[in-house]
C-alpha cells in the first residue's frame, strides 16, 4: 500500500508540473486549476505553520505549562484576537490597537537594525586603505569598491539636481549600479534555470527513470 501511495505521489507531482508548464503555451483552465490549488495549499501551509511554530511554542505552551509565570502573555493573546476583529467591518477599528503595537515595535527595531547593519557597518567596511591587502587586482578592486559606494550613494541623493560635477559623479554611480544589476540578473537567471533543471530531473529521473536521480 505504501508503494502505491509513493507512486501516486510522483504522479501527482508530474500532473501538477505539466499543469503549470502548460502556461508556456497560453493561460488555460488546467493552469488555473493548478494555480488556485497552489494558492490554497500555500495559505493552508502557512496557517498550520503559524499555529505549530509560532503560537503553540510562544503562547499556548507557556500559558498551559506555567500560567502564574506567564499570565502577561494574555495581553498579546487579547491583542491578537482584537487583530482578528478586522474581519468584521463594524468592529474593524479595534484592530488598530494591536496594529499600533506591531507597527511601533517594527519601526523601533528597523530604525536600530538598519542604522547599524546597513549604514554604520557598510560605511565602516568602506572606510579602508585600498592600497593594502594584496596584489594589483585586489588594489584596483578596493578602489572600485570605495568609488562605487560613494558615487552610488551620491546618485541616490535627489535633493540636488544632477548636473555639473555632481551630475558626473552620479553618472559614475549609475555605471556601478548597472554592473550590480547585471550581476544580480545573471545570478537570478542561473537560479531559475537550476530550478528548471530540478524539474527536468524529477520528470526524467523520478517519473520516467531515464536518468538516475
Amino acid at each position: 500500500m505504501e508503494h502505491f501511495f509513493s507512486v501516486l505521489g510522483i504522479w501527482l507531482g508530474v500532473l501538477f508540473t505539466f499543469a503549470i508548464f502548460s502556461f508556456l503555451y497560453k493561460d488555460n483552465p488546467v493552469y488555473k486549476v493548478a494555480e488556485q490549488i497552489f494558492v490554497g495549499l500555500s495559505a493552508g501551509y502557512w496557517f498550520v505553520y503559524t499555529i505549530y511554530f509560532i503560537l503553540i511554542p510562544n503562547l499556548f505552551d507557556p500559558l498551559i505549562n506555567d500560567f502564574a509565570g506567564n499570565w502577561i502573555k494574555l495581553i498579546p493573546a487579547v491583542l491578537g484576537i482584537m487583530m482578528l476583529m478586522r474581519l468584521m467591518p463594524k468592529t474593524g477599528w479595534v484592530s488598530r490597537f494591536p496594529i499600533a503595537l506591531v507597527i511601533g515595535t517594527t519601526s523601533g527595531v528597523f530604525f536600530l537594525r538598519y542604522l547599524k547593519s546597513d549604514v554604520i557597518n557598510q560605511l565602516t567596511a568602506t572606510m579602508m586603505n585600498p592600497f593594502t591587502g594584496g596584489d594589483w587586482v585586489v588594489i584596483i578592486g578596493q578602489i572600485m569598491l570605495i568609488v562605487g559606494t560613494l558615487t552610488g550613494v551620491i546618485y541616490f541623493y535627489f535633493s540636488k539636481k544632477h548636473e555639473g560635477a555632481f551630475g558626473a559623479t552620479a553618472k559614475v554611480g549609475i555605471y556601478f549600479l548597472m554592473i550590480s544589476f547585471g550581476a544580480a540578473f545573471g545570478y537570478t537567471a542561473m537560479a531559475r534555470i537550476s530550478l528548471l533543471i530540478g524539474r527536468l530531473q524529477f520528470l526524467l529521473g523520478d517519473w520516467l527513470g531515464i536518468i538516475s536521480p
Binding site: F111, Y114, M144, G148, F156
Partner: peptide, 20 residues
C-alpha cells in the same frame, strides 16, 4: 566582490536611510 558589492552597498545605504 568589488563593483557589485559597491553597487549593492550604495543601494543598502540609500534604502536604509529611507527606512530610518
Amino acid at each position: 566582490k568589488y563593483p557589485t558589492t559597491a553597487g549593492q552597498r550604495a543601494i543598502m545605504i540609500g534604502a536604509a536611510f529611507g527606512i530610518i
